[in-house]
């Protein structure tokens, strides 16, 4: 029996579905980023030279300034472009994922298309502002 499928054009794939998919994928991406972060922490010597709070701090925001008070002897090799990109990706995906989730719940209570559009524009502005400031701090600290 031939598999039944519907093309993207016929079924529609608009903003709502795109953002639904983005929310799921961004969560998976953040799991992956956290996994890379925690592996990095253990390579750094977390098992003997960090407490749990520092491991978590590094996992979710891999910036050497967050783990200055640990017993890791040399943090310089961990201040690289790779880890800055990791931190930037975390900031962007966390802000976008969280903000979209919040807007989704608020939108349950809004039916006027104009107000919904205004809220979405405000959301994009907040996202750019929040992630922009965060990423700027990562690259200049």
């Amino acid at each position: 029996m031939k598999p039944r499928t519907v093309s993207m054009y016929r079924r529609g794939f608009d903003f709502e579905t795109t953002m639904w998919l983005f929310t799921r994928l961004s969560a998976l991406i953040m799991y992956l980023l956290a996994l890379i972060g925690i592996v990095g922490a253990f390579i750094m010597g977390a098992r003997t030279q960090m407490n749990l709070a520092d491991i978590i701090r590094w996992t979710f925001m891999p910036n050497p300034s967050h783990v200055l008070n640990t017993n890791v002897p040399d943090l310089a090799p961990w201040s690289t472009v790779f880890w800055k990109l990791m931190g930037s990706a975390f900031v962007f995906f966390a802000a976008a994922h969280g903000l979209h989730g919040l807007l989704s719940v608020i939108e349950d209570y809004l039916s006027h298309p104009g107000i919904r559009l205004a809220l979405r524009i405000l959301g994009v502005v907040i996202l750019l502002l929040m992630s922009g400031i965060g990423i700027y701090m990562i690259w200049t600290s």
């Binding site: 039944r4 519907v6 016929r10 079924r11 529609g12 709502e16 579905t17 939108e107």
Partner: peptide, 24 residues
């Protein structure tokens, strides 16, 4: 339903702002 031919139309309706994505 393998006999039905309007799945695309229904999916399009469910794709609306007040459609399936309001399910949390």
């Amino acid at each position: 339903d393998s006999r039905d031919r309007a799945a695309a139309e229904r999916l399009k309706i469910l794709n609306d702002v007040f459609g399936i994505h309001r399910c949390h």
